[in-house]
């Protein structure tokens, strides 16, 4: 096997490892929310994982600064919420979680994801 092929093989190996590490091994940074939180929508959701208390009213404000049409809708299915997010405007939803657990939310095409953790 020629040297260039060996180099491509090794690079490919590292490339696969890098992609796996970069996309699939990132740590979740959980933000504790008391009453209100603003989530910036740009290339994903920031903060991506929020933790709320069961039975308490929480206002989640989404601000989309990313022009990608992929992110123009946010869906929180367990709370039956689907909102259009106009660019650079704040859209607020109010939820009162009734049960504990992890609830995912996503963009309209189910491409970007976030998580709401409800604790006692």
């Amino acid at each position: 096997m020629s040297i260039d092929k060996i180099l491509v093989l090794i690079s490919g190996f590292f490339g696969v490892g890098f992609i796996y590490w970069f996309f699939l091994m990132r740590k979740e940074n959980i933000v504790d929310v008391k009453g209100e939180v603003e989530i910036t929508v740009s290339g994903g959701y920031s903060p991506q994982v929020i933790s709320l208390s069961k039975g308490k009213l929480t206002k989640i404000s989404f601000k989309r600064t990313d022009a990608s049409s992929c992110l123009e809708e946010v869906i929180i299915p367990d709370f039956k919420i689907k909102k259009f997010l106009p660019l650079n405007q704040i859209i607020t939803v109010e939820i009162i979680p009734q049960k504990t657990g992890e609830f995912r939310y996503s963009c309209g095409m189910n491409m970007y994801h976030g998580k709401i953790i409800v604790r006692d």
Binding site: F23, M109, Y112
Partner: peptide, 19 residues
């Protein structure tokens, strides 16, 4: 540019999509 516009912030979050 729309594809880059969506890709760059996504990569900052270590996430990826169709763009």
């Amino acid at each position: 540019w729309v594809f880059y516009q969506a890709t760059i912030p996504a990569l900052k979050h270590r996430s990826a999509n169709m763009d």
